[in-house]
Design a protein around this nucleic acid. Structure first.
Lengths: 340, 340
DNA sequence: TTGTACGCGTTATCAA
DNA sequence: TTGATAACGCGTACAA
């Protein structure tokens, strides 16, 4: 992985082995053009000389990078707050899956469109493709970028009009299940906690509305609370909301983090979950099974998602134009809804 | 970031501007050797032609990569379980800080020593330096690697004998504070939950022992429970442990995740936290403030840690040999210990 | 089966 | 102030 201070090159190996560089190149690539015996000898010498190929030079010659840029459009400065375990899991899957295809992962937090690189103001060719993990507030930027550069796969809300490849959970269906579940438990006045400016959350809001409509219930705007993703702020925002009790008897939270924050505030106000209020979250982060009360939530199939994204990106790199995918979600019933 | 299908090169720009490639190169690098007027004109042309420099070729010529490899020695296949928010935060800080110095981050889960790369079996020179986020069970591997390649900074347990640069929290001090705190609250029989095979956890165990000794209390081996990091397994392991109650009245958990798992098991068994048992965790993950009861824990200064690691790595790249750092920890008192 | 010669896109050295 | 020319380390037609 690392450059040694005194780099040994193919030329060195060639000299040691008394052959040409080309032969070394072929031998190390496992080409059948080179005699098995020669190949073995060269491999041996290379190993002993502690030779490691210079990927940079190799890639330059091959006109490839064997690298995929993974971009998490996470707001800057929100350390200790964006800590959604979702990201680690996704990153782990992507790293593994891309690795299987021989690709490295280049991390990025600054999207390609803010061109404030040090030195020169131009974009560099550092990756063969890009994966955006989340569209956030940058939907149109991403669309422009995708149009321009092609090799892009995006995690997020899948919409009919997308002209680039998006992979995402069935947010609408998941939210509908969650809300319907509480309605079936007899809850009537269900609040929505989330940030409807984000497309993914917008879809969850739609599912929430669907469920209410299907039960002939009106949407009470005063129970739709614009709650940020970040757990600290979520707690702040849901603080005054709690005082609306008993105007609500159920909460659909757009994420488990928000659910955890809301429950903390409810308990502090002496309101019992799930006795007084049912709560359902979204994501199924590990903690959600282990906090008390454990959280009923909508499970996102992250592993499958990561695999599909990589599979699709590979398809694009091979010249295909894979279809977007909506991944089904699943309701995990635990304690916070009061079903048990 | 991405390679365009038809790449425009410096040669193209040179031709358009009617100058040589060298001049273009200098102009774009902002060299004062080139006439201000020429430089302006070339910049203009490059911008219009939508030119982006090929970092690969540039780096090859410069004999650098402007990339740091960040390795998370996370066990494979432990998806949905390693989801420690700690990692996201650390990754975010590292990405930002390295970015400030003009470095990209290359993610990795497979350490350099398992040489099972596809294609050829040799390591590639892909990065100017390596940051290991955690030593895990690979301490000797890391030491070998560091000796061989030099440009390495490691996050983890700082020990006197280290011959490479380690940055880590004051695990001993943190654990001592945590344990002492419970002792001062009148707890006498404090259990330890953690994996003492990992050097970081080993240090926390030492701090735990220190505190007990300082209070003339013996170390009850039956209350030292080998608990894995992973929250699912932590819950399994701490299940039978709970039955030992009332042989213990306090728990020092090596991580907040373990603390959360243990509290869930205690509650399920009808044991109250903090009334019956005090619990203190480690890490101060965001959830720990928002679960109920909120968790008293030892805060790790992740932001500072990331900054220091990058600062030190930069020092090494410039030929220095920076000292290891131990970062002080802080006890955050919340509900689970029973102080309030 | 192996070697020669050139190209990948950029930077650096030396002249001019 | 600018322009040839030679690296940088490797892959690959083409020739041998």
């Amino acid at each position: 992985m690392m450059r040694r201070t005194t780099e040994v090159t193919m030329g060195d190996i060639a000299r040691m082995a008394g052959v040409s560089e080309s032969t070394v190149s072929r031998a190390l690539a496992g080409s059948s053009l080179v005699a098995a015996k020669t190949r073995q000898r060269i491999s041996e010498i290379a190993r002993n000389a502690n030779f490691s190929i210079n990927e940079q030079a190799r890639n330059l010659a091959l006109k490839q990078t064997r690298t995929i840029e993974v971009i998490f459009p996470i707001e800057r400065g929100t350390l200790q707050q964006v800590s959604d375990p979702f990201f680690v899991d996704m990153l782990a899957v992507l790293t593994d899956e891309l690795g299987k295809h021989g690709y490295d992962v280049l991390m990025s937090r600054s999207p390609p469109w803010d061109e404030d690189r040090p030195g020169c103001a131009f974009l560099g060719a550092r990756a063969d493709g890009v994966i955006f993990v989340g569209q956030g507030r940058h939907r149109s930027d991403i669309r422009d970028f995708a149009r321009k550069h092609g090799k892009v796969v995006v995690w997020g809300a899948v919409s009919p009009g997308d002209d680039y490849c998006v992979v995402g959970s069935d947010n609408v269906g998941g939210a509908r299940m969650a809300t319907t579940h509480m309605l079936q438990l007899g809850r009537k006045r269900i609040a929505f906690l989330g940030d409807t400016d984000l497309p993914e959350m917008r879809q969850r809001f739609e599912g929430y509305c669907d469920a209410l409509k299907a039960h002939d219930l009106p949407i009470d705007e005063s129970l739709v609370i614009h709650t940020p993703f970040d757990i600290e702020k979520a707690r702040e925002v849901s603080q005054p909301f709690v005082e609306l009790f008993p105007r609500f008897d159920g909460i659909f939270a757009c994420s488990d983090m928000i659910a955890i924050a809301a429950i903390a505030n409810l308990r502090q106000a002496g309101i019992k979950v799930p006795e007084d209020v049912s709560v359902v979250g979204f994501d199924d982060i590990p903690s959600s099974a282990h906090v008390s009360p454990s959280i009923t939530t909508v499970h996102q199939r992250i592993h499958r998602a990561g695999m599909l994204m990589v599979e699709r990106l590979m398809g694009i790199l091979e010249g295909g134009a894979p279809e977007p995918v909506v991944i089904e979600t699943e309701l995990i019933v635990r304690q916070s809804c009061g079903a048990h």
